[in-house]
Each structure stands twice: as structure tokens, then as C-alpha cells.
Simulated scan of single mutants.
Amino acid sequence: MLNLVTALLAAVQSPAAPPQATQLPPPVPAIPAPVPPAVEVDTRPHVALKTDLGTITVRIEDKRAPITAANFLRYVDTKRMDGFKFYRSTKSWGPASQLIQAGNRGDAGKNFPPIAHEPTTATGLTNCKGALSMARLNPGDATTDFFLLLSDIKGFDADAPGGDGAGFAVFGEIVAGADVAAAIFNAPISPTAGEGVMVGQILDPHVTIQTARRVPAPAGAEAGCVVKAG
């Protein structure tokens, strides 16, 4: 009897036999979540020109036209552009050559020295509708005056057939407020003010740039047209 009890206790205390191994399927690797494409941040400067008729925001091509861009931004950052005037509209040229012109129409002491000319053949920019271009009489004499184009004027490009080989230096474009630019273009004109080709193009009254300040890039701003394709 004692031997039977001892045998039973030994059976109870002995380790259980391991369960029979079963083959499990290999683990399924985790699928990584898709990485969203990187959002390219536009680091080009933007400037809001607050005028009597509303605000125009321009994007400055400081990498492609660094001399002309730096000149414009110097007037903005020193607040010397405050009080400059939009004074010209080329309505008399017809629909193919529409622009408005602005600059210092007061104290010439506000002018910085003239800047070197940056032709479109060097910058890769073009005088398309919306372009911001530097006004000049001769290459290298530009100071404060600039154009905003309301139509393509390819004749302003340096390589335009029949041009002077220098053209007008593009350094930015309108990204917001094109309707304000159009309102300035369509503002009243003096029938007598101006000289030569400027007669019939002088705004009366002038439209004042109340302030010119750097601003963040507007959301959803389009790529624009001033950078030549290719």
C-alpha cells in the first residue's frame, strides 16, 4: 500500500510533458505608414503695397535678380517707399501694352544710387502679365521707378526682336491684388500732364503707396509666369 501511494505522489509531482509543438505561420511584417511629400516653403520675399485703392502683394525674385530685388527691398525696409506714387497708366497704348508705373515723385534725397542692370537674358525672367519690372532710361540708371504689367509685353525682354538688347529688368510679380492694379490702371488721367509719350498717361490724382512692408507668402499663391520654362 505504501508503495502505491509513493508511486501516485511521484506521478503528481513529476513535470508535465510539453505540449506537442505546432508550426505557426510567420509574423506578417508591419506596413509603414506612407510619408507625406515634403511641402516646399517659399522663401522668396513678399511685399504688400498698401495704396489709396487697396493692397497689391508682390513676390520678389531675390535669387534670380539679386541686385534689382535688393534695391527694391532696401526702399521697403527703410520705409522710403512710403509715400511713393503710382503716377502713370498706359491706357493710351491700347490693350497689348498695359502697365502702371510708380516711384518717388517727391524728395529726390530719398533716392539711393542707381543700380546695375540685370537683363532678362541673364535672369531667366520675362515680362509677362503680372510682372514687376524696373523702369529706366538707360541701362544702369534705375533708382526707384518700377512697372507692374497688366498684359504680356515681350518687347520689354532683352532678347526681343527690334529691341535695344537690354530690355527692362524683371524682378518679381503680382501674387495678390491684381484687381487693385487694374483699378489704378483705369483711374482718371490728365489730358495735358506729362511730356512726349507720357502725355495722356499721367494719373490725376496720383495713387499713393501709403505703406510698403514685407509680409508672409499668401496661402495658395500661384507659381506665376515670370520664370521662363525650361
Results as ranks from 00 to 15, higher is better:
67 I>Q: 11
135 A>R: 02
40 E>H: 13
156 F>W: 12
185 F>W: 08
133 S>T: 07
176 A>F: 00
86 F>N: 02
170 V>Y: 00
29 P>D: 03
147 F>A: 09
207 V>A: 09
225 C>M: 10
136 R>S: 10
30 A>G: 05
143 T>I: 12
209 I>Y: 04
199 V>E: 04
186 N>K: 13
157 D>W: 05
52 D>H: 10
16 A>S: 14
182 A>I: 04
100 I>K: 12
98 Q>K: 15
96 A>E: 15
184 I>H: 03
36 P>H: 11
196 G>N: 14
11 A>L: 15
61 E>L: 08
190 S>C: 04
33 A>F: 09
179 D>T: 13
149 L>K: 07
98 Q>Y: 01
209 I>D: 01
135 A>V: 00
38 A>D: 06
135 A>C: 02
42 D>G: 03
215 V>E: 01
92 S>M: 08
161 P>S: 06
200 G>S: 08
149 L>E: 14
74 R>A: 15
69 A>E: 09
35 V>S: 08
142 A>W: 02
9 L>G: 00
94 G>N: 06
56 I>E: 08
10 A>T: 13
64 R>V: 02
30 A>K: 14
218 P>T: 03
19 P>R: 13
20 Q>H: 08
165 G>V: 08
4 L>T: 07
12 V>C: 13
19 P>L: 13
27 P>Q: 01
176 A>Q: 15
44 R>G: 03
4 L>Y: 02
204 D>Y: 00
59 R>W: 06
140 G>M: 13
6 T>C: 05
138 N>W: 03
217 A>W: 00
171 F>C: 02
4 L>K: 11
23 Q>T: 15
162 G>W: 09
25 P>R: 11
72 F>W: 01
146 F>H: 14
114 P>M: 03
192 T>C: 01
144 T>P: 10
123 T>S: 14
95 P>M: 09
145 D>V: 04
53 L>C: 03
37 P>Y: 06
101 Q>L: 15
67 I>K: 15
215 V>Y: 03
177 G>C: 05
169 A>I: 02
162 G>N: 04
65 A>S: 15
155 G>N: 10
11 A>D: 13
26 P>H: 02
86 F>D: 03
212 A>P: 09
137 L>N: 11
167 G>W: 00
227 V>K: 14
191 P>W: 02
122 A>Y: 00
160 A>P: 03
35 V>L: 14
28 V>Q: 14
160 A>V: 09
123 T>M: 07
15 P>T: 08
81 M>C: 10
144 T>K: 02
52 D>Q: 11
165 G>F: 10
50 K>A: 15
130 G>T: 05
2 L>H: 05
83 G>V: 01
159 D>I: 10
141 D>E: 07
128 C>T: 15
81 M>G: 14
48 A>M: 12
202 I>F: 01
22 T>F: 04
72 F>R: 00
153 I>W: 10
43 T>Q: 11
86 F>L: 05
175 V>S: 05
166 A>N: 14
77 D>M: 04
195 E>W: 06
128 C>D: 08
95 P>N: 10
75 Y>F: 15
5 V>M: 11
201 Q>A: 07
64 R>D: 07
43 T>N: 12
217 A>K: 06
150 L>T: 03
200 G>E: 05
48 A>D: 11
113 P>E: 11
120 T>Q: 02
32 P>I: 00
225 C>S: 13
154 K>W: 04
106 G>E: 12
187 A>Q: 01
78 T>G: 10
131 A>L: 10
85 K>S: 14
13 Q>H: 12
20 Q>A: 15
84 F>L: 06
43 T>F: 11
107 D>I: 04
